[in-house]
């Protein structure tokens, strides 16, 4: 029994231990790393990324993949900005209406994604990749390649208003992470993601409407991408067709580093939170300890491999693809 416990525990806590080890490592090299200001910096960088990663976590838990995040984030960010400006340009003057609007758009992107994937029986990799093109393309079309700015102080308070040193958006993200965890563990939908990821055919045979669960999963992911899009706007004060660029690989990397299995059914929101923190700590740490620019991408790669190697349960894997 003790053997069982230690092994289970080791697998469960490995990503967190990797995170702690990284923090200790960077602090040892440069004590400035371990400062509240720096943590705030990491948190701001991680906030939109975490929303994207949580969105895609639901999909990966189902054993599918979603690569539409770049297009979805760009499109929702751009539409949010336009709606916000059109509705008066400030939160107080009706701009707040743009928030539910963006969420709906995100959900719609996810819905189309899910419908194309499920109804046309196109693997999610391709369906979502193509939808990502469409999303980015739509963002290009709407903006005509321009940048849309938002200068409402109330909305930008998400970044500028700090409580205990951390900007408001960090708290928003923490609350949303809890919400995601709650969905995952305490709602039928969340548990059904695990059922589909653990054994789709069995779930179907048990009378579960697998197709509906899939589609709903993509909708949920789309809503989280929309949140990420709005946070990006709050962070940068602007939106354009490349607002969502670079989210795809980094978010999936984070999810996997946190210990969510790409083949589905294993891991969850907390893994993703830890994974996103690992990736962002690595990114930030490399700057703080003063590594030259050009080393950073390679270094990130090596550290990510190290993190995955340390946090996977090798005994249960016969092979990986």
């Amino acid at each position: 029994m003790t053997r069982f416990l230690t092994r289970e525990a080791a697998i469960r806590w490995a990503p967190l231990l990797v995170l702690i080890a990284l923090v200790i490592l960077f602090t040892a090299i440069n004590p400035d790393f371990f400062a509240q200001r720096n943590f705030a910096r990491i948190a701001i960088a991680a906030a939109p990324a975490l929303m994207v990663a949580i969105g895609v976590t639901f999909i990966i838990v189902m054993g599918s993949i979603d690569l539409s995040m770049e297009g979805a984030v760009s499109l929702t960010a751009v539409l949010f900005c336009f709606a916000f400006l059109w509705l008066g340009g400030t939160l107080a003057a009706g701009g707040w209406l743009a928030i539910p609007l963006a969420l709906i758009v995100g959900g719609l992107i996810g819905l189309i994604n899910g419908l194309v994937h499920v109804k046309l029986r196109i693997p999610s990799f391709m369906a979502s990749l193509a939808m990502g093109f469409v999303g980015t393309g739509a963002a290009v079309l709407i903006t005509g390649g321009d940048i849309v700015r938002i200068e409402d102080d109330t909305f930008r308070a998400l970044l500028t208003w700090r409580i205990a040193g951390f900007p408001l958006m960090v708290y928003v993200v923490v609350i949303l992470a809890f919400l995601a965890w709650f969905i995952q563990n305490h709602t039928t939908l969340g548990r059904n993601f695990y059922a589909v990821g653990g054994g789709e055919e069995l779930a179907h045979a048990s009378g579960l409407n697998v197709r509906r669960v899939r589609i709903t999963g993509f909708v949920l992911a789309g809503v989280f991408y929309a949140i990420a899009g709005m946070l990006q706007v709050a962070k940068l004060g602007q939106a354009e067709s490349v607002t969502g660029a670079n989210f795809m690989f980094i978010s999936i990397t984070s999810v996997v580093v946190g210990g969510v299995a790409l083949w589905g059914g294993i891991g969850g929101v907390w893994n993703t939170v830890v994974g996103v923190l690992i990736v962002n700590v690595i990114n930030n740490g490399m700057v703080v300890i003063g590594l030259p620019d050009y080393v950073q991408d390679g270094m990130l790669g090596l550290l990510v491999i190290l993190a995955v190697v340390l946090s996977t349960d090798r005994r249960n894997i016969s092979f990986v693809k």
């Binding site: 709602t187 695990y194 045979a205 059914g265």
Partner: peptide
């Protein structure tokens, strides 16, 4: 034919969780 990453009770009530759900919460 049980889904191995779920708990015993989740497997038993898979697809019929609705009876335990209040306001969306299991």
């Amino acid at each position: 034919s049980l889904i191995s990453n779920l708990t015993v009770m989740e497997n038993i009530f898979l697809g019929y969780e609705a009876q335990f759900v209040r306001l969306g919460v299991i």
